[in-house]
Amino acid sequence: MGIVSPGFSGRRRSGSELPPGQYLTRDFPVLSAGPTPHIRTEHWEFTVTTETGEATKWDWAALLALPADEITKDIHCVTRWSKLETNWKGVSLDTLLADVETSADYALVHSYGGYTTNVPMDDLLDGQAWIAYEYDGEPIDPEHGGPARLLVPHLYFWKSAKWVRGLVLSDNQDLGFWETAGYHEYGDPWKEQRYAGD
């Protein structure tokens, strides 16, 4: 085992190192574009569908049986709050996609409740994204996306879809819920890519 966890982000950074236009919060604001789905873990399922239509599914027990990472990352919401050194536990997308045959460039992330968001495959692999199921050592509250949410913390937090239920992989970039309504297709907080055209 290495001495540095995959999510290690160094010593606490000062507020001056926040991405441009962000302010520091110690709360964990709840943002939601709809009613909170309450998904029982016995009914939870995560499906990856490739560009050829082949589907791979995991149920809750299968997810928990996979090797998990402890992740400590800063998160940045497009509504301008940032929260430093948040602690999560989850399964890396590298692990989940290891046996999925695909050459797709894009993923459209789907959630229970109908939410979607688009993320390039290059941003989901190489230790950059997880299916997280614990926050601060506890199961993730439904209001924060439990039982499981995508965690892709180097992009604005709307990309870290709550209540995640699957990925649909494609050679084309289909835009998600906020991306079709004026938000940036990529969403890099350090480049302040909030809105389309930024």
């Binding site: 939601s32 709809g34 309504a181």
Partner: peptide, 12 residues
């Protein structure tokens, strides 16, 4: 039903 605590306004 209108949700305003979000990146935009959503009426459902």
């Amino acid at each position: 039903h209108v949700y305003v605590n979000a990146p935009g306004l959503v009426a459902r």
